[in-house]
């Protein structure tokens, strides 16, 4: 029920920037579990869940890249119509706002994972689990 650590990387909108960030991670032996990058004008924030966030932070900082570690919730739901709507309804009913969210699927297992950023991770996690929705721990995404 604990929040998961997410790496946020500041990237300028320049040719080859994402590739170089990804390469530093690869060279450090860090595997990317999920990621999100929205379209932007001058700069963007590249958000990642990785196999080893401490290592990721270390290799990026050593390369002089501005990054930070923040906590997010990883919510596990069934990969069926309505499961996402139900999970969001729980948050809405409890007046929990999302700052941002992204998702990844594992079709072979039939699960979907939504990564959400809310103000109060612990509170939101409790409400979700109380409503029978599973929160994935750090260990499970390694």
């Amino acid at each position: 029920m604990t929040p998961v650590k997410q790496i946020s990387v500041f990237v300028e909108n320049k040719h080859g920037k994402l590739s170089s960030v990804a390469r530093y991670l690869a060279d450090g032996g860090v595997s990317i579990r999920a990621m999100c990058m929205a379209d932007t004008t001058d700069f963007g924030i590249f958000r990642l869940l990785v196999s080893d966030y401490e290592k990721a932070e270390k290799v990026l900082k050593a390369a002089g890249i501005t990054c930070s570690v923040t906590e997010v919730l990883v919510v596990e739901i069934e990969d069926t119509p309505g499961a996402f709507a139900d999970a969001m309804a729980v948050l809405a009913d409890n007046h929990i706002s999302l700052e941002y969210a992204y998702a990844f699927l594992t079709p072979t297992i039939g699960k979907a994972y939504i990564i959400i950023r809310v103000e109060d991770n612990i509170g939101a996690a409790k409400i979700l689990t109380d409503n029978g929705i599973k929160i994935v721990s750090q260990e499970e995404i390694v």
Binding site: S8, F10, T40, T66, C67, S68, E99, R117
Partner: peptide, 14 residues
Amino acid sequence: ELVDSSLLDSYGKI
């Protein structure tokens, strides 16, 4: 240059 990495929490802050 951005030095405060805590702003990476949201686009809005930057």
